[in-house]
Computed example of a mutant assay.
Amino acid sequence: MSQLPPPVRRAQPQQQSAAAEDAVGFRPANKAGRKARISIQGVSGSGKTKTGLSIAWGLAEGERFGVIDTEHGAASLYAGDHGIQFDVLQMDRYDPRDLIKALEAAAKARYPVVKVDSLSHFWKGTDGTLDQVEKAASKYGGNSFAGWKDGTPLQNDMVAALLTFPGHVVATMRSQTEWVLQENARGRREPVMVGMRAEQRKGIEYEFDIAAEMDITNRLRFLKSRCPALHQQILERPDGARDIAKPVLDWLRSNPAQ
Rank of each mutant, 00 (worst) to 15 (best):
Gln200Lys: 12
Val192Tyr: 10
Val194Gln: 10
Glu199Lys: 15
Phe122Leu: 03
Arg221Asn: 09
Gln200Glu: 14
Ser118His: 09
Leu154Gln: 06
Cys227Gln: 03
Tyr206Thr: 13
Val116Ser: 07
Ala212Tyr: 03
Lys224Leu: 07
Asp117Lys: 07
Met196Gln: 15
Leu154His: 07
Gly167Ser: 10
Gln155Phe: 13
Gly125Cys: 05
Val180Asn: 13
Ile244Lys: 02
Phe222Glu: 06
Arg174Lys: 13
Glu190Ser: 08
Arg226Val: 03
Leu181Gln: 15
Gly151Thr: 02
Ser118Glu: 08
Gln233Ala: 10
Glu213Leu: 11
Gly147Leu: 00
Arg201Glu: 14
Trp251Met: 08
Gly141Arg: 06
Pro153Gly: 03
Asn143Lys: 11
Asp250Gln: 12
Ser175Phe: 14
Arg226Lys: 03
Pro247Gln: 04
Arg197Glu: 03
Val169Gly: 06
Pro256Lys: 10
Pro166Thr: 02
Glu236Cys: 10
Thr152Lys: 15
Gly142Ser: 09
Asp215Phe: 10
Glu134Ala: 10
Leu252Gly: 02
Lys246Asp: 05
Ser138Lys: 12
Thr217Phe: 14
Leu235His: 06
Leu249Val: 04
Asp250Gly: 07
Ser225Pro: 00
Ala241Pro: 05
Pro166Arg: 01
Asp117Pro: 06
Gln233Cys: 09
Val170Gln: 01
Leu154Cys: 03
Ser144Ile: 15
Thr164Arg: 13
Glu178Lys: 15
Pro191Met: 07
Asp239Leu: 13
Glu199Ser: 12
Arg219Val: 05
Ala212His: 03
Trp251Gly: 07
Ile244Val: 06
Asn255Cys: 08
Lys124Asn: 11
Leu252Met: 03
Gln200Pro: 12
Arg186Thr: 09
Thr164Val: 11
Met173Arg: 05
Ile216Phe: 14
Leu235Met: 09
Ile244Pro: 00
Leu252Asn: 00
Glu207Phe: 04
Ala241Cys: 05
Thr177Asp: 14
Val170Pro: 00
Gly141Glu: 05
Asp209Ile: 11
Val159Asn: 11
Gly128Tyr: 07
Arg242Glu: 09
Asn156Phe: 08
Arg186Phe: 09
Arg253Tyr: 13
His168Leu: 01
Arg226Phe: 01
Arg219Glu: 06
Asn218Pro: 06
Ala211Val: 00
Arg188Met: 13
Ile210Asn: 03
Gln176Tyr: 13
Ala211Leu: 00
Val248Leu: 01
Leu220Lys: 13
Thr177Ser: 15
Trp251Tyr: 12
Glu183Ala: 08
Phe122His: 02
Arg226Leu: 02
Ala146Asp: 12
Arg221Leu: 11
Trp123Pro: 14
Ala211Tyr: 00
Ala136Thr: 02
Arg201Asp: 12
Gly128Thr: 06
Phe208Ala: 04
Val170Ala: 01
Gln132Pro: 01
Trp179Glu: 14
